[in-house]
Amino acid sequence: MFASLTKYHQAFLVGLQSNLVYRMNFAVRGFFSLFHLAVVFILWGAAFAHSPSIGGFNFGQTLTYFLVMLVMQFFVGAFNEDYQISEEIRNGLINQFLLKPINYFLYRFSIFLAARLVTGVLVLLPLLVAIPLLKDYLTLPHEWWRLALGVPAMALSALIQFSIAYCFGMLTFWFLEIQGFVILSMAVESLLGGQMFPLDLMPGWIFRTAQFLPFYYQTYFPTAIFTGRIDFSTAVQGFGLQLGWVIVLLAINQLLWVRGLRRHTAVGG
């Protein structure tokens, strides 16, 4: 058991090193996320100037939502894992994993965790700039259960994010180029994951439908728990659904891997 964990621990350390090589990329991305926050501040500030409450929340609460959403994206969001998996399949690099006693999903997930550790730390840079500027607006609820439920929800969100990226990576077994699928999925995720606007501002029936989709649990769900946009009973109910989606997505991952390998042709030596 522990010996098995050691190899994924090593994969984690390798992932940490290779992600630190690209620290500049993540830092640039973090820096540009400040511009995104500026867009949010300007657009929503102008909207709230005309209506003091939108969807039952004030400007400070909405701004807090977008700031927590940004942190969430850096801590649990999949960045380019789908492309990395796709490249490994296309270039035949997965062949080595077929011959070794290592689970490819767990190997990639260990690297994903390492990458999120690096991006999670680097998001502190834009936060150090943003928080002093926005501190008068930020407002977080103080109920203890939000932390107790929000942190595990965040962990499950990371698993959902990675599983969806893994699924798209697996599509390489069937399609030569997956970029179109990935960017289409990014649009769906940014909309139904609540990155464009808080989902509860959408018409009721769309919001209720979104709650049954996995995208809702990618970033919106933990963000809504932390920022007070959902109450305790909705959060507990949502946690159950989130757990359900994790199981479904893990099953789909396994299915795609098994089916994909049947189509895979390992060429070269």
Binding site: S51, I54, I183, S190, L191, M196, F197, L201
Partner: peptide, 19 residues
Amino acid sequence: WMSVNLLMISVIYQHTDSV
């Protein structure tokens, strides 16, 4: 992606008359 941007405008204006 274009629809996402247009939808965002539409959602904001469901809650306010002017930006």
